[in-house]
Computed example of a mutant assay.
Amino acid sequence: MDKVYLKDIEIFANHGVFKEEKVLGQKFILSLELSLDFKESAVNNDLTKSVHYGELCHKVEKLFQEESCDLIETVVDKIAKFVLEEYKIVKEVKVLLKKPWAPINRHLDYAAVETSRKRSIAYIALGSNIGDKKKYIEDAIVKIAKVKYVEVIKEAEIIDTKPWGYEEQDDFLNTVIGVETLLTPQELMKELLSIEKELDRVRELRWGPRTIDLDIILFDNIVSNDDFVIIPHPQMHLREFVLEPLNQIAPYALHPLMNKRVFELLSDLKR
């Protein structure tokens, strides 16, 4: 991956917890590291295929100064997401913010925070077997598309499936969508749980009936055993109603633990 650097941009702004910081302001030193592919730009001498770092510098400075924040952690997160939203060619951004005049009553060179944000691809499984099942799924997709920093980029067909795990219930409709997102898996899962609640999801019986079920199946090549969101989904390789629609939109997506493509997992399961 190619890199573009903006190092030690000096900006005067009014960020800080203390009243004096907000009133008087102070100097901050900002650095950016962008990861992208600018080979086409280099070969064709075409700036539109890279990032105009002069333009970016001015845009970031304007963003930096437009609102006072208590925490510089908030500032770097805001800048990182702005860069990824503004420049689709950028795959990942690292932001380092130094605060050389930090009011701690001690001598120090500077206090600083650093963050990295990236453009990620996630696959979300949707299922419903109560009421107007198709509408619940369609409404969920619309709501997911409206989540900030989430863009729906692929949609599989909606398929009829038999219940799995607990069979004494109505048949399901299932599908899978692909999204591009700047959110972390935990942030995305919180949004999905909120949408489930909006669509009257009630959790009474494991694998039981539900108006809508939203699960993160894959998220980049991440392997996570976080209690809040386990990735890859631990039962995805056992569920044809997940693999069938996932295979429509991402047959070559790799299961990072089993080291198999989606089409291979589906073939194994059918055998």
Rank of each mutant, 00 (worst) to 15 (best):
K78S: 07
L199D: 06
G131K: 12
Y110E: 03
V17P: 04
E168N: 15
D268G: 10
E92D: 10
R106V: 15
D200T: 08
L63W: 00
A13M: 10
L47I: 15
P163K: 09
K88N: 13
S35N: 13
E196L: 08
V142S: 12
I216N: 04
V90R: 04
P209A: 11
F172G: 01
T74C: 04
P100D: 10
P251R: 03
K190Q: 08
D268K: 13
H107K: 15
E155N: 13
S116A: 13
P251Y: 00
K270P: 03
F18C: 06
L254V: 10
L265W: 12
S128T: 02
E196D: 00
V152P: 02
S128M: 09
V242D: 05
N45T: 12
N129I: 01
P232K: 01
V113L: 05
M1D: 02
R271M: 14
A125M: 13
F82Y: 15
E240S: 10
D220M: 06
F228H: 03
K3G: 00
V176M: 03
I29V: 15
I230M: 06
P103R: 00
G54R: 08
I11T: 05
I195Q: 08
I89Q: 12
S194F: 14
I141M: 15
K49Q: 14
M189W: 03
K78Q: 11
G127A: 04
F28A: 02
E244A: 12
T181N: 05
D37N: 10
N221T: 09
V51E: 08
I29R: 12
L218D: 02
L193S: 02
N44P: 10
L246D: 01
L199W: 10
D2V: 09
E187W: 09
R119C: 10
D226H: 13
D37H: 00
I153T: 15
Y123G: 01
K88I: 15
Y87Q: 01
I104M: 10
V75S: 07
L257C: 02
Y252F: 15
A42S: 11
I104R: 01
A80F: 11
N105C: 10
R106Q: 14
I79S: 03
